[in-house]
Amino acid sequence: MFTGIIEELGTIEKLKKEGGNLHLTISSTIASELKVDQSLAHNGVCLTVVNIDDNKYTVTAIQETLDKSNLGMLNKGGKVNLERAMKLSDRLDGHIVQGHVDQTGTCTFVSEENGSWLFTFEYGTNADNITIEKGSITINGVSLTVVNSKPNQFSVAIIPYTYEHTTFGTLKVGDTVNLEFDVIGKYVKRLNELRN
């Protein structure tokens, strides 16, 4: 379980394809604090640490994960948002994030808004996911509040701190992002479907 509050940016050092799996080796200042078998969110995708070597660690993404996320689009030298799993005694500063990406979306608009930024995203209709005004959404692992919710489209406002300390600082129109929709909203939607 995660909160969507990014701890730091990691750098992709190595990508190794093996069958349907992709092994990602990432450098990070938190690598020495990790343990093998620990869960860590990468752009919002929960992956298990399988190896640690000084300031680098390795995780493996299976084909299902690659099909539903943007991890297969990462390149050596690229940045990734990192968050360790929440401790039960921690404050929930973001919202409840499972680290299970529902689908990807595409950035369609970026605008600087007098010291902050407005990002707009579109996503496919195939999964029937929804957003609501002032509801929660996770984009590349970052917990955010939805503005301008429309069918298969929404916007988020990004403050300077988030812009500078996550991959939002390099995100541009046309980029693919990982989306995890609010888990409570998903349950409510499913319950309503079962009643009809």
Results as ranks from 00 to 15, higher is better:
V50R: 13
F109S: 14
V142M: 04
E33Y: 04
K186V: 11
N81F: 00
Y161R: 06
E180T: 00
Q38S: 09
V156Q: 09
F2H: 01
E133F: 07
Q38R: 10
L92C: 08
T170G: 08
Y123C: 05
S28P: 06
E7Y: 00
S27Y: 06
V50P: 10
E112K: 15
M73Q: 08
L118S: 11
V142D: 03
R190T: 13
Y187M: 11
T58M: 04
T48M: 11
N196C: 01
G72A: 07
F181T: 03
L24P: 05
L40R: 00
T125G: 09
G44R: 03
R91Y: 10
G169Y: 05
M86I: 15
L74G: 10
I62M: 08
I52A: 04
G78D: 15
V188D: 02
A127N: 13
C46F: 09
L82D: 00
D93R: 12
S28T: 03
L92A: 03
G94I: 01
N75P: 05
V101K: 01
T167P: 04
Y163I: 03
K68M: 12
K189F: 13
N81Y: 00
T104A: 06
I26N: 02
Q103H: 07
Q63F: 10
N75Q: 14
D182C: 03
L15W: 11
N75K: 15
H165T: 14
T29W: 04
L194C: 06
L171P: 07
Q63H: 14
T170Q: 13
L179R: 00
R84T: 08
T65E: 10
K17I: 14
T125I: 07
K16D: 12
K68S: 10
I62K: 14
K186R: 15
T108H: 10
K172P: 06
G94T: 03
E133K: 15
A157P: 00
T166E: 05
D67V: 03
